[in-house]
Design a protein around this nucleic acid. Sequence first.
RNA 1: GCACCCGUAGCUCAGUUGGAUAGAGCAUCUGCCUUCUAAGCAGAGGGUCGCACGUUCGAAUCGUGCCGGGUGCACCA
Length: 570
Amino acid sequence: MQTITAQLSAAFAKAIHAAFGIQADAHIAASANEQFGDYQSNAAMGLAKSLKKNPRAVAEEIKAKLDLAHMASEVSIAGPGFINIRLNPTWLATQATSLASDPQIGIGKVSDPEIVVVDYSGPNVAKEMHVGHLRSTIIGDAISRVIEFQGNNVIRQNHVGDWGTQFGMLIEYLRKQGFTGGQLEIQDLEEFYRQAKKSFDDSPEFQAQARARVVALQSGESFEFAAWQDIVVETRKSYQPVYDNLSVLLKSEHERGESFYNPFLAEVVAELKLKGLAVESQGAIVVPTEGFENPLIIEKTGGGYLYATTDLAAIRYRVRELHANRIIYTHDSRQAQHFAQVFQVARKAGFAPPEVSLEYAPFGTMLGEDGKPFKTRTGGTVKLKDLLDEAEERAQKIVDEKNPELPEAKRAEIAHAVGIGAVKYADLSKDRTSDYVFSWEKMLAMDGNTAPYLQYAHARIRSIFRRAGERGINYQPGNIQLESPFELALGKHLLKFSETVELVSRELRPHYLCTYLYELATKFSGFFENCPVIQSEGNVRTSRLTLCALTAQTLAIGLDLLGIGHPEQM
RNA sequence: GCACCCGUAGCUCAGUUGGAUAGAGCAUCUGCCUUCUAAGCAGAGGGUCGCACGUUCGAAUCGUGCCGGGUGCACCA
């Protein structure tokens, strides 16, 4: 099924062509104010200028040629030349009815599926995940789910920071401590890392030894390699449970850490040299980039590669081996310049041919309540695990209080969905590009525009169906009628789901979906307060039950796309 | 010094890429549980969209200049 916007755009484009013989965009938008109508075309004002005509006359001519069949109940011209459309409730009801019988609720599978690589999360080895890792992880996950739901083939890639100078430091430090292999703890590793960094900064001797360890590791020496593996395994043990707890779909098979590209780095540099892109500068091998003062350094003086080299190798691999059509990076906006340079070089080198889309979906920095980059009072960071545990605990208290009659296991399940959902939604509902302020209170809020509000709306609907069952009402989907203003508002909003999903996929901004779902839940609340379902009868009851089913399904799918749970009861 | 991002209600944020009277949540205040879950609903107050010019039928949105905050810029990732 086509979106309403698409249907209106097509009809208006046709009318504009019929009236003036030109192809022009219809500039269809949902009306900001309901008094004007549901949708509007803002094309007439723009066309008036190029056609040298009065805008209202242009609008009249478009309207005269417009054929919306049964879609609209009213088309009117207002202001300087807005064409307002009020949709026909009968037509809307028919559309909603057909949506209710579609398991994908109007999101058609794309006809030409693409291979989409999404690079997200990317935790660092030897460090525990902190709250700053939340954004990349859940935004990337939501984007992946949405694109996948549209029928594309998504390949998740977790570009784990598991290679480079810091491992030389860490291994050298471990060796000095008498480490011979085996058991390590993530907390110890963090401490070792701090110590190692200190030695590295303080002692030129240590520095030289650390560099030697890197070389040994990169050429696969047994002690270094084994120690590195122990570190990697231990770190994975600390982040995998966090992914699972967050319902993030990353597994070990999605890991393509920096180390994975090590064997290709020399080839990448050689290829860039061969193509005449890489040159020597101040002893290093660099690729000059337009629009940037500094070139992209791909090989250090005296050998050794950098993360730019790895990122180039990754693009090359994703295009040549994974056959990606689209590569999406969900990373901190501080890396904007780096990615701009890497993308530029990848294009020039042909690692990414023009038909492959390289998309950087940056997100802002997490700030503390003082407006400065987030740090705890002691100068450290908040561990992601601690935030999630706290969220679940707080949710548990509320569940225990509100639903003491439910079995313990059920309550724990609800607390998990609600607590984790609240944290994820708090982050996902903000536009990813802006910096945002971390606040325990806001992260863990359960009232107002939060995940629990959406979950609550869903649970209330499920409850209606449970009550209906208890009263022997056998639900079968039927025709939806949109008679009261509350039903009409709900129905109209349900029909916007598919365009919202398209928008999220195109712009890589999950917060549009959050806003949509919040409004959906709000409109459902209006319906819930004003339109009795079980107490109504006949066609009205069938219609309302069907509307409820469609709303619950839309909420459930929407929450699934955000990776947020939707309990039956709460 | 060069480059990028941001500035909207007391606080936290939206604002579908230039559309009509700038919207939510939190906080404050007033109502609503004897009908499907009050994690809810209805309502009130709260704005120089950082400032100033400009572009045009129309600017929170685009341009220029200031002010204020953040970030990145040669061998860390």
